[in-house]
Design a protein around this nucleic acid. Structure first.
Length: 263
DNA sequence: AAAGGATTCAACCGCCTTAGT
DNA sequence: CACTAAGGCGGTTGAATCCTT
């Protein structure tokens, strides 16, 4: 028999009260983030640690921006979702990546905004676009690089049916031609050029991702480096002692790329 | 004014990955 | 190597609020 009759052990669910918020905030300010399973004890809350974490990250954390999304924020979400949205398997952390580009907005905020405001709108636009282009042979989509986002942990990348490729393997794929004449992709630290085709889904994807110029099919990804402001910037892969990090472009470069994209 | 349908968004759920043992 | 706990993610839910009739 569990302690069902002891109400002091029943954990609360649902909306947070102002009192709970204060307790959690004080606790985090005193002890810092982390060890979420201990937070309810430290804070005197009858909540799951996971619930505390979510409340802190999405609502109580300093510098969280509330209220309506601005036009530039919406535009950025739309563009980044177009880049990442069709590649959900590879870009597993899509919403985090997108929210990482928008100061003060959480992944949950961005996801909610997309689901409630943008998804249907984009669907309609896409359908319109397809209808308009149905008589043409193909559409052209130019694409931008992923946002600058430092991943603290190595990610597993999609490799095929239930297989993953470790980050270091992707690093190998992206290794500079200066470092390895036999590298799969002829990528200098500053410029991406056409990769070699290999019989592997991830390489197929990377080929698409790094292919020069424009793609000829809808929903596909390619690169456009026509603009000299942008040309020369590339996906840098750097080492951080223990962890492999993808150092995506700076804000300025990102905006240049986004401005180039014709959506 | 009120009923009820539509929309919003905070919070939960389940799954996956990672770190520790 | 296997197991477990914790952290982190995207998808989904449902209460609150807004809008329409």
């Amino acid at each position: 028999m569990k302690h069902a009759c002891n109400t002091s052990l029943v954990l609360r669910k649902g909306a947070w009260s102002a009192e709970e918020d204060t307790l959690l905030k004080n606790c985090i300010e005193k002890h810092g983030e982390g060890k979420w399973n201990l937070v309810p004890l430290k804070a005197g809350l009858r909540r799951y640690g996971k619930s505390c974490r979510l409340r802190w990250l999405n609502y109580l954390r300093p510098n969280i921006k509330r209220g309506d999304f601005k036009e530039d924020e919406i535009d950025l979400i739309r563009r980044l979702h177009k880049l990442l949205g069709n590649r959900q398997v590879v870009f597993k952390y899509k919403w985090s990546l997108i929210s990482g580009r928008i100061p003060g907005r959480t992944a949950n905020d961005v996801k909610n905004y997309w689901n409630t405001h943008l998804r249907s709108r984009v669907k309609q636009q896409k359908k319109k676009h397809q209808d308009a282009k149905s008589s043409e042979d193909h559409t052209m989509v130019t694409i931008i690089k992923p946002q600058p986002h430092t991943l603290s942990k190595p990610l597993n990348w999609f490799k095929g049916d239930n297989q993953v490729v470790e980050t270091h393997e992707v690093e190998n794929l992206l290794r500079s031609s200066d470092d390895d004449a036999n590298s799969n992709y002829n990528i200098s630290p500053r410029l991406i050029s056409s990769p070699v085709v290999l019989d592997d889904p991830i390489n197929e994807f990377l080929k698409e991702l790094f292919d020069e110029g424009e793609k000829t099919t809808d929903n596909e990804i390619g690169w456009l480096f026509d603009d000299p402001k942008v040309e020369g910037e590339a996906l840098n892969v750097v080492e951080d002692n223990e962890n492999s990090l993808f150092d995506f472009p700076t804000d300025e470069v990102m905006w240049n790329l986004l401005n180039l994209e014709q959506l």
